[in-house]
């Protein structure tokens, strides 16, 4: 009995030692030489492996940062400027700051604005639906509502609003990784400048049909009338193919265009809301209710109704 135990222990120990030597030799022979800085850079990255930077994952991004002469072409949208500063300090290089971005859904074709003209009965995926036909409304450009953007978002920042049938971006959670932009077959979602105090003005429509056609399909469509472009003092608005577009690098958030738009296609979000005038107690100074008061407020929900905007001016 004891001899059996002794033998067993001896053989196992010997085997273990032998295999350890083999492992050591193999590890030595196949060792991959890697820049140690890659590990260091990877440590300061968020580690979401979302691919928002255009690389396969955080490690690939770290490798690219280490190999590139400067950081101009590499940016981690999730970590933002803070992370890039850390990366720069690890590598000992300079980094330019980038304005924070956010995903913006440019469609306001709610169930009410854009009546359904047919019923979709296939697999619930925007890609499948888009490959089949123009969609279940009269608008062949707008949101298909199957939520491909929602399922690709790794940060839980997009959700479908069952009332409007449109996706809504949570600006606090959105990291501007761009996954939803790529996933949307209709190219409705755009990464835009987050703006000062999250204030943004944008055209919430991508319909390039002629005005009458677009208007017939959706009450809130951009009809390409060009009033906004004329009203813009900064030349930030261009109208091409019956569709207005606001260049966020030029927009100064004056909101003149918002007042001009006949269909309410231009949205201004996170601006202070004025209470309706007849409110007897309110004095003008007390009026502004900051959007910041409710940070988790959804973008669409914060859209100002048109009449109050006019009153502000």
């Amino acid at each position: 009995m004891t001899t059996t135990i002794i033998w067993t222990i001896a053989i196992i120990t010997l085997l273990g030692a032998l295999l350890a030597v083999v492992l050591y030799l193999v590890a030595k022979k196949f060792k991959v030489e890697e820049d140690p800085r890659i590990d260091e850079v990877e440590k300061v990255l968020p580690g979401a492996n979302c691919g928002g930077c255009g690389h396969a994952g955080c490690r690939a991004f770290a490798q690219s940062c280490v190999e590139a002469p400067n950081l101009d072409n590499n940016f981690c949208p999730v970590g933002g400027n803070d992370t890039m500063k850390k990366v720069a300090s690890v590598l000992g290089v300079e980094v330019k700051e980038k304005a924070p971005m956010v995903a913006v859904v440019r469609c306001n074709g709610t169930c009410e604005n854009r009546p359904r003209t047919n019923e979709y009965g296939g697999y619930s995926s925007c890609r499948v639906k888009a490959a089949l036909y123009s969609g279940d409304t009269g608008c062949s450009f707008g949101c298909l509502g199957c939520g491909d953007c929602v399922s690709v978002c790794q940060f839980g920042a997009i959700a479908m609003n069952p009332e409007t049938g449109l996706p809504e971006v949570d600006q606090e959670k959105c990291t501007a990784c761009g996954a939803c932009v790529k996933a949307c077959p209709k190219a409705i979602i755009e990464l835009r400048n987050k703006g000062a105090r999250n204030k943004r003005v944008f055209v919430s429509c991508v319909n390039r049909d002629k005005g009458a056609v677009a208007r017939k399909a959706c009450k809130a469509a951009c009809i390409g009338c060009g009033k906004c472009a004329k009203a813009c003092p900064f030349g930030a608005i261009t109208v091409e193919n019956n569709l207005a577009y606001i260049d966020f690098t030029k927009c100064k958030l004056c909101k003149k265009c918002v007042a001009e738009c006949p269909t309410g296609a231009i949205h201004a979000v996170n601006f202070p809301v004025l209470k309706p005038k007849p409110a007897p107690v309110a004095k003008p100074a007390e009026v502004p209710v900051k959007a910041e008061a409710a940070p988790a407020q959804k973008e669409q929900a914060a859209v100002n109704p048109q009449p109050t905007e006019k009153k502000e001016e």
Partner: peptide, 9 residues
């Protein structure tokens, strides 16, 4: 008969 049903083949 309301709205036409559309789905892939």
């Amino acid at each position: 008969m309301n709205k036409l049903l559309v789905s892939p083949s």
